[in-house]
């Protein structure tokens, strides 16, 4: 089966001269949640920017459902939706108008929009604030706006960058529940996170990035086996991996 998202030996960065990520290869299949794990500055967000098409890989290939960004940028962009780490919004638009704009930009019909929007507003408890401007929102509420915008589109692939910080416990539960629902209906999710316990509970596979390279990837069982720690939690495996890495003297 063709993977939803496929990164094939991707090397890239912000400038021509310096590569931030090197030889990154992994896949996200329909129906699974893949966690992208790494320390601050490991290259998670840079990887995501390449997937979004905001950065062009210097080497290697990124495809969503077999399609590369350069082949058809509009079609490529319509295949995913993105939840950014820091909420990005228009000061001039209300919450409702953001959702409306999103629906229009992704080519939803008005009937589709109306059908999808109400359950989202209720799930994330933002119904009363739909005519407010996001400037007045807390960080968590802004984050909820980003989440609702992403779920509204119902794409094949969700790219989620560190979504849990700033969300209240109910918001976190709602987010994870919706992500699970989406994968049950055949979508795939790539989620970058620091919260390893949540990742362990909700994600099917894990890609560990360290200093721009993939350190290890696989299911929890595979990681336990690779690290020689049967029964260990993701947290323990990850810390052991990193410590082992940091012990190596610099070259």
């Amino acid at each position: 089966m063709q993977p939803l998202l496929k990164l094939d030996n991707v090397t890239g960065g912000y400038t021509r001269s310096k590569a931030v990520i090197k030889d990154i290869s992994f896949e996200v299949h329909a129906g699974e949640i893949v966690a992208l794990i790494g320390l601050n500055g490991a290259g998670k967000s840079t990887t995501i920017k390449h997937i979004l098409g905001l950065l062009t890989p210097r080497q290697g290939k990124i495809t969503i459902e077999g399609l590369q960004f350069a082949d058809n940028p509009e079609r490529y962009r319509s295949l995913y939706s993105y939840i950014p780490e820091t909420p990005v919004y228009y000061e001039e638009l209300t919450l409702w108008e953001h959702l409306e704009l999103m629906a229009m930009a992704y080519g939803l019909k008005r009937s589709q929009f109306e059908e999808r929007v109400q359950p989202l507003l209720e799930e994330f408890r933002m119904d009363k604030r739909k005519n407010h401007f996001p400037t007045q929102f807390s960080k968590g509420m802004k984050q909820k706006l980003m989440i609702m915008m992403a779920f509204l589109v119902q794409p094949r692939l969700y790219i989620v960058d560190e979504p849990l910080l700033g969300l209240d416990p109910l918001g976190i539960r709602s987010l994870l529940r919706w992500l699970k629902n989406c994968t049950a209906q055949g979508a795939g999710v790539l989620m970058s996170t620091h919260i390893l316990s949540t990742a362990e509970a909700y994600c099917d596979r894990f890609v560990v990035i360290h200093e721009g390279r993939i350190k290890v990837q696989g299911t929890l069982a595979e990681l336990q086996q690779l690290s020689g720690r049967p029964g260990a939690s993701l947290d323990e495996i990850y810390l052991a991996l990193i410590e082992e890495e940091e012990d190596v003297p610099p070259t």
């Binding site: 228009y90 638009l93 409306e100 704009l101 629906a103 229009m104 930009a105 019909k109 008005r110």
Partner: peptide
Amino acid sequence: PFKQEAAIRYLYLKT
């Protein structure tokens, strides 16, 4: 109109 072609107009005009 509620159409993809009008989305960017919506954004420009509203902002």
